[in-house]
Nucleic acid binder design. Structure first.
Length: 511
RNA sequence: CGCAGGGUGGAGCAGUCUGGUAGCUCGUCAGGCUCAUAACCUGAAGGUCCCCGGUUCAAAUCCGGGCCCUGCACCCA
């Protein structure tokens, strides 16, 4: 069976995990979990990009080897994944043998095919920065003092014939509207492709950069950035082996808008084309989290620390917030006030309080046993009908990656359940000695419990632990590989089950 | 300059592709309820959908023009 294969970008080992890393992984995880619940065999890949100048430099500064640095940094990234409940199936490091072997294999093939050639590169080199400068680095037509001596040198390097694939790529993007999501991003790429693109320099001489994968056909060089990093998407699933066919093409490459152009929308498709492979189905491009309207960046120092929120409010609350707030593709502001508003409002008052009041009532009026649903009056029918509509909408929204809308729809159901309690008023019915009122009371509790189970089930991709916990509290289990098409159907499966005592899932917090 | 995104009741957003009662959350005001996390439920007020022009029976939505905000330095999802 073909896998549903999705990837995040691999994180660069020269830094700590931040908001963007957390969001991208959560987004991927939500999609992965949803697909699993739809019966897909999901393969979710993430990983670490370990080579390159920055890593080499940082390691030197700290007096350790680059590999030691990576071995250390990876702990932070994996730890973040664990804390966020990221259900990746594979984690690739670009220093692993399986990756290096594929990179060298691909390079060799493309070299033999004539897609890679040796050429002279002439430019202005700054020994202090250990890199070439560009025209835009000039200030008032001169190189800035602080860069020290600048020398014009020419250097031989290997190039990939990117330019020859440009016409093909333009028509591919034009003919495949789903290739880049959201669609407006494709326009940007086409805009970029309007002007001539240069062939891509893919090597660095070992004297300048030792921390990389040597070119198989010329060991004096290592391969530079993209022919290393991008290939993780195929090296991790056994490129060259038989099993590769079970995974490729990827359903989603999930990336930030910064690495769409040119890396993922230009280099990668052309590389794949050169390799004779199919294109990934969709590049899913998300925007950036801003802090009070400003870009979050290490240099400005206004970085939101996701793990602080996870620690205080739980991973699922954090997952809920980022999924509820950000329309995929747009930028979105992260502010503490908004977080607390969502937390107290949606999670505490609406969902958490619903759980709390229902469990209280079940304890008080039904000895913690979920009673029969015997009556079926207009109110009950309306509620069930509403769930039919909502569950369909939610599934549609999940499929279309409109996750904030999926959650909004689910919350309609939460509110309807709270409203239903108000209409039926079990606390009134409990005072009556009429047998019919007793049935009404029982039915009300049973209906609310089932409604809550359905909401929790549909919420599972976004809030896996909370969903499971609510179901557990209602006396049933919820597996991560259960079948949504079954579990989202209104049922009587809770009847007779013993429930947990009252609990507070999301204690209110002060601003 | 160019490119891209955005400009919708007090705040934050959806709706724009595929024209047809302007929707959601929060906030405000009034009321209800007491099972519940001072929660929940009901009702109300509040909008020239940035501006101008065009197409159309009909425009937030399509077309033309203009204004304003943001991003396109290193780092970075």
């Amino acid at each position: 069976m073909k896998h549903f294969y999705l990837t995040t970008a691999i994180d660069y080992a020269n830094g700590k995990p931040h908001m963007g890393h957390a969001y991208e992984k959560i987004l991927a995880d939500v999609i992965a979990r949803y697909q699993r619940l739809c019966g897909q065999k999901v393969h979710f890949l993430t990983g670490l990009d370990e080579h390159g100048q920055k890593v080499q430099q940082t390691a030197e500064k700290e007096g350790i080897t680059p590999q030691q640095l990576c071995d250390h940094v990876i702990l932070d990234f994996k730890n973040m994944c664990d804390l966020l409940h990221i259900s990746y199936n594979d984690y690739i490091r670009t220093t692993e043998r399986r990756h290096r072997a594929v990179v060298r294999d691909v390079l060799q093939k493309l070299f033999e095919k004539g897609d890679i050639y040796l050429s002279e590169y002439r430019g202005f080199y700054c020994p202090r920065l250990e890199q070439f400068l560009q025209k835009k680095d000039k200030v008032k037509g001169r190189w800035p003092e602080e860069l020290g001596e600048i020398i014009e040198i020419s250097e031989s390097n290997y190039f990939f014939r990117l330019s020859s694939y440009r016409p093909w790529l333009i028509s591919y993007i034009e003919e495949h509207p789903n290739f880049i999501f959201p669609r407006f991003r494709a326009r940007q790429v086409l805009e970029f492709l309007k002007t001539e693109v240069n062939d891509l320099c893919i090597s660095r001489p070992q004297e300048r950069l030792a921390w990389g994968i040597p070119l198989p056909f010329d060991e004096r060089y290592v391969t530079y950035v993209w022919f290393d990093a991008l290939l993780n998407y195929v090296s991790a699933i056994g490129y060259g082996e038989e099993r590769f066919e079970d995974y490729w093409p990827a359903n989603f490459h999930i990336i930030g808008k910064d690495i769409l152009t040119p890396a993922h929308a230009v280099y990668w498709p052309c590389m794949l084309k050169a390799m004779g492979l199919e294109m990934p189905k969709t590049l899913l491009v998300h925007g950036w989290w801003l802090a009070s309207g400003e870009k979050m960046s290490k240099s400005v120092g206004n970085v939101i620390r996701p793990l602080d929120y996870v620690r205080h409010y739980g991973a699922d609350a954090f997952r809920y917030f980022v999924m509820r707030e950000m329309m995929i593709g747009q930028d979105c502001d992260f502010s503490h006030e908004r977080f607390v508003a969502r937390y107290n409002g949606d999670l505490g008052n609406d969902l958490g309080n619903l759980v709390s009041r229902l469990l209280h009532m079940l304890q008080r009026y039904s000895h913690r046993i979920i009673p029969q649903m015997e009556l079926r009056e207009t109110e009950e029918r309306v509620l069930q009908q509403q769930w039919q509509d909502i569950s369909q909408k939610v599934s549609k929204f999940y499929r279309e990656l409109a996750i904030p809308m999926a959650l909004e729809s689910l919350w309609e159901m939460v509110r309807s359940l709270n409203r239903f309690a108000e209409i039926r008023a079990p606390w009134q019915l409990a005072k009556s000695s009429d047998g019919r009122d007793k049935k009404k009371l029982e039915t009300t509790l049973a209906i609310m419990a089932e409604g809550l189970r359905l909401v929790a089930t549909a919420l599972q991709p976004v809030m896996p632990k909370v969903s499971q916990f609510i179901c557990y509290a209602l006396g049933v289990s919820l597996a991560e590989d259960s079948d949504l098409s079954q579990d989202l159907v209104w049922s009587h499966r809770l009847v007779g089950h013993r429930v947990e005592g009252p609990m507070v899932l999301f204690p209110r917090v002060k601003m």
